[in-house]
């Protein structure tokens, strides 16, 4: 049986590349279409970079999941960074506190089926995404 869950560190830019490659492999194992693979890989890349840059590093925890009728991939991006003081602002297209395009969070949300963010000032940020096959 193939492994159904695991985790990967997000401590360097190279880790972002490795996270992308891991998500590509997992979505392929789950039989995602090429477009769906690409969407999930891109969402993972955005969130991994956020965890590294804004969260000062973190972890990607992955799990192959299923409900009664479909299979999917669930990813949790967890960091122990400063948290997001104004989540509504952070979820606005084009808004950025750093040097990006401000498309990271909102863009990632559009690329997946389920998106959940839990953040606390001083307590880190946890973003969970799921894409179903």
């Amino acid at each position: 049986m193939s492994v159904t869950n695991g985790e990967a560190p997000l401590r360097s830019e190279h880790d972002i590349v490795l996270a992308r490659q891991l998500v590509r492999k997992l979505t392929q194992e789950l039989g995602f279409s090429l477009v769906d693979q690409t969407k999930m890989v891109t969402a993972a890349s955005e969130l991994a970079r956020n965890a590294l840059i804004y969260g000062r590093g973190g972890t990607m925890i992955w799990e192959k999941t299923a409900d009664s009728e479909r299979r999917g991939l669930k990813l949790l991006f967890a960091d122990e960074g400063p948290g997001i003081p104004d989540l509504n602002l952070a979820m606005t297209d084009g808004w950025t506190s750093g040097h990006g395009l401000g498309m990271g969070l909102t863009g990632a949300k559009r690329l997946v089926n389920d998106f959940n963010i839990d953040t606390k000032v001083g307590g880190g940020t946890r973003v969970t995404i799921v894409r179903w096959k």
């Binding site: 690409t38 969407k39 891109t42 955005e46 395009l101 498309m103 909102t106 863009g107 990632a108």
Partner: peptide
């Protein structure tokens, strides 16, 4: 697939 994703991402 990259073009589709890019537009949905908002770019």
């Amino acid at each position: 697939a990259v073009a589709i994703t890019l537009v949905e991402l908002g770019l």
